[in-house]
Design a protein around this nucleic acid. Sequence first.
DNA 1: TTTAGGG
DNA 2: CCCTAAA
Length: 755
Amino acid sequence: MLEPTDDKSDEGPSSTTGEQPSAANKRGATDRLVYKLVKVGDDGSVLPATEDEVFQSLVEGSSGGRAPSYIGGSDVNEDDEDEDGSDGSLDSNEDDSDGKEDPSFPSGREDLVAARQKLLSQLEVVDTMLLRVDAEEQQRVSVEDQIGTQLGHESNSPGYLNAGDAIGDYKRLRRPNPKYFDSDAGTDVVPPATTVPMTLSSSVGELIATGTSPEKQALQPSGLVAFPRTTSGWASQQSSIRTAGTQRARTVVAQKTFARKSNKVQVPGSVVVPAVNSMSNVASLDNLSIRELHEAFRSTYGRDTSVKDKHWLKRQISTGWSKQRDAALNAGAHAQLSSHIDLKLRPEQQLSAEQSLPSSTAATAMVSERDTVNDTQEPGTNGVGGTQGLVTNGVDSKQSPHRGLPLPVISPAEGFDASTPGSVNEMGSGGVQIAIFGEVVNTGKQVGGKRQRKPNRRYIEDEGEARPGTVLANGSRPGPVGSAGFGMSTRLSWRTVVTNGPADLIGQSGTLRGSTLRNSSQTNSLQGQRTKPSNGSLKRKAQGRAAKLVKMAHSAARAAQHDTEGTIRKVKFRLPAVPGREKDGWYELNRDAGDQVLCLLPVSSGDSTDLLQSLDSENGADAAGEQLIATVPTANGGTRRKHHRPWTLREVMTLVEGVARCGGGKWADIKKLAFSSVGYRTAVDLKDKWRNLLRASRAQLYPPKQGERKKQFTAAIPANILARVRELAALQHQVPPGAGAAGSTSRNGRSVYRK
DNA sequence: TTTAGGG
DNA sequence: CCCTAAA
């Protein structure tokens, strides 16, 4: 089996996506085989659609092509299933110590069927075993919790940050049994730990069955103890994490090394080592400078990124690593895993389901991390859910091509933290585990055979249709700002406004300004910054139209892609308690595509509040992020690329809200709160944008003389927003917007701003 | 590191 | 947007 699957996987990238699926279908007869093939095929072919997919494709170097294929839809679903299955399967395997079966699979495809039946028959037994194991795990978990608490960790920063970082580190953990998660948040954390050993072992290549000897686990005091046993590397890593400072240098080096290797990790043979390295590497990510992060990013994905956001980079890199690791892992062990997976996932359905899977498959049952189950229920999934107890549906909207379905919320890893505030802080090890957990989820897909989707976070639809919900949110949103006008109503009105001018741009894509475009660039670019007002402006204008068109087309394309994906991710994260100010809720930024602002209502009145963030931008950012508009000659002679990412209306609104909340000048805070997921858009960018907004707002006051056409962008920004900007500026004593507000204004600010 | 400003 | 000085 392995060989075939592997081959397929390999082929996947090269061959067209479409082909594989079809092939898989044909083979449908054999469950397992087909299944694997499909997965593999999916990974190879489909992946591109998802972030993870994209990444993988990048990593793989495959290519490009694959774009928008819907293929992903069906395939994706399968992928999800696989994941679920994998998790379960691992347990079952180890627990059962069914090695017997495994051999059978490898031996022959045909055998598979027989084997499968056999397996199915045994399934019940296995399940029983699992239950027992689970029970033990729970015990263990409880123990771990205690330990974790004792350990107390330094986890410093806001939970969400940690989570994100940590996540990167440990990806591939086996997913805890959903049941646990669902039941309680508190314990949830633990399960991951339990799983960890498993994963590690698998990665290592030796399958240690934690499950196999449940008693042992039980005996062990804590999950931590288990780790060492599993992999020495792991233990060291943890230590390294805790004492990051000490080993920093060393780890960094390791990381680099890893990075290089990582590219090739895909190769099956090397699996074990890479995995270990990756772990350590990840741990060290925190310590890396932005420069190093970029390097790491490049080595990981084979391309540069313009993103400056450290957190974002870390996430991306860790994701990439995890993927690679997973891929490697899969290569090594996937045969067994897959077999088990199948068994576990859907015992009954397998027979019948398998066939159906390819097409509809909803199932995905990823285990949700604790809460996270989001379910959009799709018709097909029910059965599965029944089997497992949980069905999470596709994490990804991707699975289902239907964009229409609003996806309920999924709690992201961060969300998780939020959910279990107390525990999170307390547990040193626990925190790690959690992170890991989340990571696993996040991780998108795997190169090798395994799939994986990343969506820890929830996806929501971008489409306008989805908006209603959002709107509601807005309406409900606390109006601290006094943004009376803003709420949802704003949205509509804005839209209308937009229509006037560059409406198109603003519309779905939501970009505010038409003037600068990516394409406009090169020629422009040179002159671009350099160009002085007079000349430059004219030029810009001229280009403007063309550029707009291009831009529009582009945005449309992008929107379309999104649509395909159809989802936006929202993340809820826990805010660090801010002494001075309490944050109730924020608007969420979503992708460029959407105009809307989502608002998260304050969940807890207490110090901790949750915010929503848009992560989706991450995805896009990366891929899209690369948009380089122009290259600018640097003083030294190098040419530096200048990227232009038009601000979306949503972003602007978010920024405004941020200013209203945090005050002007608190760019870093705003960044963290509302733009943390974005990646591009640094605090500096926010500041610049605000400055521009101020200018615009001021400009608005002085009605452009008819003769002079002020910059068009003024038109793009809704008057009410500008008014609000002005208001805020005045209020905060920032540069007074208009004439009178502050005396200071008259002098410098004004003259300067004034053209 | 973050903020303010200039280009 | 980018870059850099200042805090």
